[in-house]
């Protein structure tokens, strides 16, 4: 099927089988490999992307379902400079192997864009949909708490 959508600000199109997940489409058709697959059954959150500004698991969506939508992956969040959220991840050592990291960054970005005042409990609650095997989550939560400041007044809600 022919699909057309907006990926990281660029209009893209592809011919995909209906069974192609959004995650596979982003990775294979468009070479945006920052979206990672760790479970492919909707538990780990590594494949989280933003669809129309909302965090979703791209392994639990079909590519044909984003026809006409705006999709943003981790690659679409920053240019050459790290965003404050990414810099906070680095500062707090909120990643080790880095495989789950894109999913945490996209999820935290969506959360803070909508709720820049999220408290620690809310952050932990939201991030509990993402699995990390390396960090024990403590530094991830610290990083997200610190990054809140940069989202305040951004008015993206």
């Amino acid at each position: 099927m022919d699909i057309k959508f907006d990926l990281n600000g660029q209009s893209v199109s592809a011919d995909v089988e209906p069974r192609t997940t959004l995650a596979d489409c982003i990775r294979n058709n468009f070479g945006q490999t920052g979206t990672h697959l760790a479970c492919e059954h909707g538990v780990c959150g590594a494949c989280t992307v933003l669809v129309n500004g909302e965090a979703v698991r791209s392994c639990l969506m079909l590519a044909v379902q984003v026809q006409g939508d705006q999709v943003v992956t981790v690659e679409g969040l920053s240019g050459d400079e790290l965003t404050p959220l990414q810099a906070a991840f680095r500062k707090h050592h909120a990643l080790q192997c880095g495989f789950c990291t894109p999913g945490f960054i996209t999820t935290a970005h969506a959360l803070l864009s909508h709720e820049p005042g999220a408290d620690e409990e809310r952050i932990r609650d939201v991030l509990s949909g993402n699995l990390c095997r390396c960090t024990g989550y403590v530094p991830i939560v610290e990083a997200v708490l610190e990054a809140r400041e940069s989202y305040r007044g951004s008015g993206s809600k």
Binding site: P18, R19, T21, H41, G42, L60, L62, Q65
Partner: peptide, 25 residues
């Protein structure tokens, strides 16, 4: 299929094998 949050894992495991998905989008 709508949100697909229950159906997609079943498709991934091939526990569901429909001929057609009708999206309510």
């Amino acid at each position: 299929i709508s949100g697909g949050q229950s159906l997609m894992p079943m498709l991934a495991f091939r526990l569901a094998t429909p001929e057609l998905l009708v999206d309510l989008k």
